[in-house]
């Protein structure tokens, strides 16, 4: 066990955990930030996506010891759930079961920050790591385009 200082959603935390603990389980079990989901544990499904210094990373395979920098989770993406990506997701009623959507939204927000007006090919590339078992891909694509018009790159 060791104490790690984490900066999550602009707050500082000290957690006493095994250094090999994936960031995902620190967020969920230690900080009670359960919006970030477990889907596969091997960085294949993207449900656990968070931002590390603005880049989308898979928190299920990132040891807490390596999580250095500013971490943003779905809970911290916006103050009031009004990030353009979140608004577009609601407007187009994207979610079915909803389990993967936090990860989808974090990946999409990172894409738009990097590429404010993504093409379909950009979306294919950026979103290929996020599985939606319900098959909401058509609406996710549409929502990313809609978020782009709402200033999704903020």
């Amino acid at each position: 066990m060791a104490v790690f200082q984490l900066n999550v959603n602009n707050r500082s935390y000290a957690v006493d955990v095994d250094p090999d603990t994936p960031l995902l389980w620190v967020l969920r079990d230690e900080l009670n930030l359960t919006g970030t989901k477990y889907g596969c544990g091997v960085a294949q499904c993207g449900a656990c996506t968070v931002h590390l210094n603005g880049n989308p990373v898979r928190s299920c395979t990132l040891p807490v010891a390596a999580a250095k920098g500013n971490i943003t989770t779905i809970e911290g993406l916006s103050e009031n759930g009004d990030h353009p990506v979140q608004k577009a997701w609601i407007e187009l009623d994207v979610a079915q079961c909803g389990y993967c959507q936090a990860g989808q939204i974090m990946t999409a927000a990172a894409l738009l920050a990097r590429k404010p007006q993504p093409t379909d090919a950009d979306i294919d590339t950026a979103m290929a790591g996020n599985i939606c078992r319900c098959g909401t891909y058509k609406r996710i694509r549409k929502a990313i385009h809609l978020a782009a018009t709402k200033g999704g790159a903020r």
Binding site: D29, G35, K37, L77, G81, E91, G98
Partner: peptide, 28 residues
Amino acid sequence: RMVNVDAWNIVTGKMPFGLDTRREGMLT
């Protein structure tokens, strides 16, 4: 066309799923 009643909770990470259950004295 009506939006899923849990949409806001889902997009903000506030929607609890089974795996998010936390109770006093609970072990995993």
